[in-house]
Every structure is written in C-alpha cells, then in structure tokens.
C-alpha cells in the first residue's frame, strides 16, 4: 500500500506520461486521416536534439521549443511527401524516418559537441508552481510543480477532442480515414486533409521530443526517445484512436514505467512490469478484451485522380 501512496511514484508517472500523451494525440490525428505513422519516434528524437541545440545557441528555451517543433513538422512533411505524393509504403517510410533521425541526431551530437555531450548551460523550459494544489495528499507534489508543457496539455487535449469531433475539419479528416472516396466525391482534397493530420502529428511529436530534452532535462543523448514513439503508438491504439482513450492509455503505460523504476532493487522484477504495456496492446489489437476499431482506410494510399 505504501508503494501506491508514495508521491514520487505519481510525480514520475506524470513525467513519463506527458510525452506519451502528446505523441499519441499526434498519431491519432495522422491515423484518423488514414496514414499509419510509426515515424513519431523519429520526429520526437529530431525535435529533442534540435530544441537543445537552439535553446543553447539562443540562450532561450522557448526558441528551442519552437525550433524543435519546426523540426518535427519538417520530418512530418518529408514523411507526407513520400507517403501521400509518391504513395510509398507508410510503414517502410516511417522506419526510414526513424533511422534518419537516429543517425542524424547521433552524428550531429558527436560532430558538434564531441565527447562531453550537449553543454550543461543549456536553458530548460520553466516549471510552474501551483501552490494551491500542493496540499493535496499523495498526488499534490505530482500536480503542483510541473513543467509548463504539462499544463499546456490540458488545452491541447480539449482542443484535440473539439477539433476532431466538433469541427467540419475534424469530420472531413475522419472521413478521409474511413472512406476517402466519399470525401473526394464531396469535392475535397484527400491528400490535403491527410497532410494536415500528418503535420499535426509532427507538431505534437515535436512538443513531446522537446519535453524530453529541455522540459524535464536540459540535455540530449543518443537515442534519447528509446522507443517512446512506439509506446505512444501503442497507447493510441490501446486508447482506440480517441483523445480520451489516448490520455488514459498513456497514463496507464506511464504508471507502469514509473512503477518499474520504483521497483528497481525490490523482489518484483521491473523488466516484467515493462513488458505489460506491450502485451496489453497485443491483447487489445487481437480483440481478446475489448476490441479496438481502427479507421477503415488506415494505411491505404489514395491515388487522387486528376480532374
């Protein structure tokens, strides 16, 4: 019981979950439009590096964040060009983007900063203190003292829910993921809507990456994302392609990660705890407990006929 009452566990849960929530929301927009996006890992990684580099060079963490998000968006445009315009296989291109990001960030880290890694004088994004919340038992410390990007999640989540289900754009984006021919016959450009979904995934993955490098830390190391992009993908699927689901799944996966860290040195093997998110996702995809339903046209390239 004392394990669950430890405020550290919940603070850690929030820290691990925040990038997962951002990235899984991004993946949701992309897949709702019909584009399978395993490239979030690479977009996050690229942004994590670029935001450190720019934050250090400009002595301003906000400029770092902006540059990081821009780099995530740039990667998503490259991804979109190959998958939408050239109709290349989405999973293979996603893999290529991940490899490119892993190689480029590792290479530039070594080439620019050498053996010592990124400079320790890199500024990081501010932490806000909400003293009102700090008196809450157990959860207080987790909620009262968080990075600004954590608080920014609340409007992002509400915005995502509203945009996807309450706006014409959201309706059209979802139609492109379910039946692009229908959207096309309504005179809409399938590719343009899909592009908007992919671009949003780049921007949100960019925020997630910046959170890792200049949010909780102020440094970058090789393969810093360490598979978080894939966990975010899993969270989005486990959350059934919905903002609320992505939030809940990210929190569950984040909690399991945090628990495995807290369990290190105890009898319960932490590696087994880390296996749970992956196995849960397999179970969910297989429909053994609560079947998930992806958008019907998810992953299928669309050839826009010339008018």
């Amino acid at each position: 019981m004392s394990f669950f009452l430890n405020p550290e566990l919940w603070a850690l849960t929030v820290t691990v979950s925040v990038p997962l929530i951002y990235a899984s929301l991004g993946g949701m927009f992309s897949e709702r439009g019909g584009v399978v996006n395993i490239a979030m890992e690479g977009m996050m990684l690229m942004s994590a590096f670029v935001s450190v580099a720019f934050a250090y060079a400009s002595h301003n963490a906000w400029i770092g964040l902006l540059a990081g998000v821009a780099s995530g968006a740039a990667m998503s445009l490259l991804f979109a060009w190959a998958t939408l315009k050239l109709q290349a296989d989405q999973v293979v291109v996603g893999m290529a983007i991940n490899l490119l990001a892993l190689g480029l960030t590792g290479y530039f880290l070594d080439a620019f900063y050498g053996y010592n890694g990124t400079p320790i004088s890199t500024p990081s994004l501010p932490t806000w203190h909400l003293n009102v919340l700090s008196h809450l038992p157990v959860l207080g410390p987790a909620l009262a003292q968080e990075n600004v990007l954590t608080y920014l999640l609340i409007p992002t989540l509400l915005g995502a829910q509203y945009a996807l289900f309450r706006t014409p754009w959201g309706l059209r984006l979802r139609s492109m993921g379910e039946k692009p021919e229908a959207g096309r016959s309504a005179g809409l450009s399938v590719l343009r809507y899909r592009l908007s979904g992919v671009l949003l995934s780049g921007i949100l993955s960019g925020i997630a990456g910046a959170y890792l490098s200049i949010g909780v830390l102020n440094s970058f190391n090789v393969d810093m994302t360490a598979g978080r992009g894939y966990i975010a993908l899993a969270a989005m699927i486990f959350g059934n392609w919905k903002p609320k689901g992505a939030l809940m799944a990210s929190l569950i996966f984040g909690f399991l990660s945090a628990a495995s860290i807290q369990l290190q040195g105890s009898i319960i093997p932490s590696d087994i705890v880390l296996m749970v998110p992956y196995l849960l996702t397999v179970v969910a995809v297989a429909g053994i407990v609560g079947r998930t339903t992806p958008p019907a046209a998810d992953g299928i390239p669309y050839q826009e006929e010339s008018l």
Binding site: A88, V92, A96, L100, Y107
Partner: peptide, 25 residues
C-alpha cells in the same frame, strides 16, 4: 568520424527504396 553515419546512410537508402517512385517522378 561519428559511427552514427551508418544509420544516416541506411535511413536514406530505405527512404529511397520505399519511395522508389521519386526516380520516376
């Protein structure tokens, strides 16, 4: 010279193999 260069080459090759229509394009 940073060994990560190998991943850059790999990534570039996969990208071009997947998007092989860029040559036709």
């Amino acid at each position: 010279i940073p060994a990560q260069m190998a991943y850059v080459i790999q990534g570039a090759i996969v990208f071009m193999v997947a998007a092989d229509r860029m040559f036709d394009w």
